[in-house]
Nucleic acid binder design. Structure first.
Length: 277
DNA sequence: AGCTCAACCTGGCTGC
DNA sequence: TGCAGCCAGGTTGAGC
């Protein structure tokens, strides 16, 4: 579920409830995530005030006085704002109380993570997991000609498919498996094409497509924001209407050709063999 | 350095 | 109805 748009929408949804608030209690129901939740996290965070929540790629960064809590939603993670009186549900792995407001991290598959970066370790950019990330799709480094240049130059000599190249997030972050297929369809590029063989004009189309697809998804998520953060049932689906993703065998919405599904780098890719050359 | 692949974990769906 | 097998939004780390 969480690609960049979902993480961004989550950030926008929870920030008003958390920013400027002081953590009063932290309960770890099950801290066996991708990496174990630091055993002393409660001790570290209690009585600290969260000044801001930022997003870097698919990571959420909670800024506290003495450091930054780094949270990743993994495949199935969802954050919800609830009253502390509400009963925590199954798979609520960890909850942060800010007065009578609870921020609950729900994550069935435990691929998420919650880590701590103490201020003594320097700027958050030094955090190992963030260090190798590509640029933000909406920041200056990727806008205008910059995005095209980056995608083109960094791909020279690369033999991996453009699908895997984009998905890896080493050039631009935030494009997950769904929006990767969607962006390549938007740019009319065949996902199997080796990244190093794609011309500059085509990378220009791709850079624009990535921004468009992600922006649209954020807008779609934004509309269901309220439901999302207040829900204590299943999270609202942001899934925007996809043109190709999860549409194997169905007619392409532009030309009617059946959409193909293939596997690349252990992940499914969907594309239109007619529209994407 | 870049490529491929196993691994982390749980639930839901498909097909026998 | 039951159960085995496969698939799922992400990412690291090992081995070549």
């Amino acid at each position: 579920m969480p690609e960049l748009p979902e993480v961004e929408v989550t950030k926008l949804g929870i920030a008003p409830y958390i920013e400027g608030k002081t953590l009063t209690e932290l309960i770890v129901h099950d801290g066996r995530f991708r990496w174990p939740v630091p055993s002393n996290l409660k001790k570290i965070l209690i009585d600290q005030t969260c000044s801001a929540i930022h997003r870097r790629g698919k990571y959420l960064l909670f800024y506290f006085e003495r450091g930054v809590m780094v949270l990743h939603l993994g495949m199935t993670g969802v954050l919800r704002i609830q009253k502390i009186q509400e009963e925590p549900k199954k798979y609520n792995r960890i909850e942060f109380h800010f007065g009578d407001t609870a921020l609950r991290f729900h994550d069935p598959r435990k691929f998420g993570s919650v880590l701590w970066h103490p201020i003594e370790h320097g700027p958050i950019e030094n955090f190992p997991l963030l260090k190798k990330l590509g640029v933000e799709p909406f920041e200056n480094e990727f806008s205008g000609v910059n995005g095209t240049k980056l995608l083109y130059e960094r791909s020279r000599g690369r033999t991996v498919s453009v699908k895997q190249y984009l998905l890896a997030g080493q050039v631009v972050v935030g494009v997950g498996n769904i929006y990767c297929s969607e962006s390549l369809f938007e740019a009319k590029i065949n996902p199997k094409t080796p990244a190093g063989k794609i011309s500059k004009p085509r990378y220009e189309r791709l850079a624009k497509a990535v921004q468009l697809i992600l922006k649209k998804a954020i807008q779609a998520g934004g509309s269901s924001l309220k439901d999302f953060v207040h829900s204590d049932g299943e999270p609202g689906h942001f899934m925007v209407l996809t043109k190709v993703y999860d549409r194997a065998g169905l007619p392409c919405k532009e030309c009617g050709t059946p959409i193909k599904q293939i596997t690349q780098g252990q992940r499914s890719t969907y594309y239109c063999p007619q529209c994407q050359k």
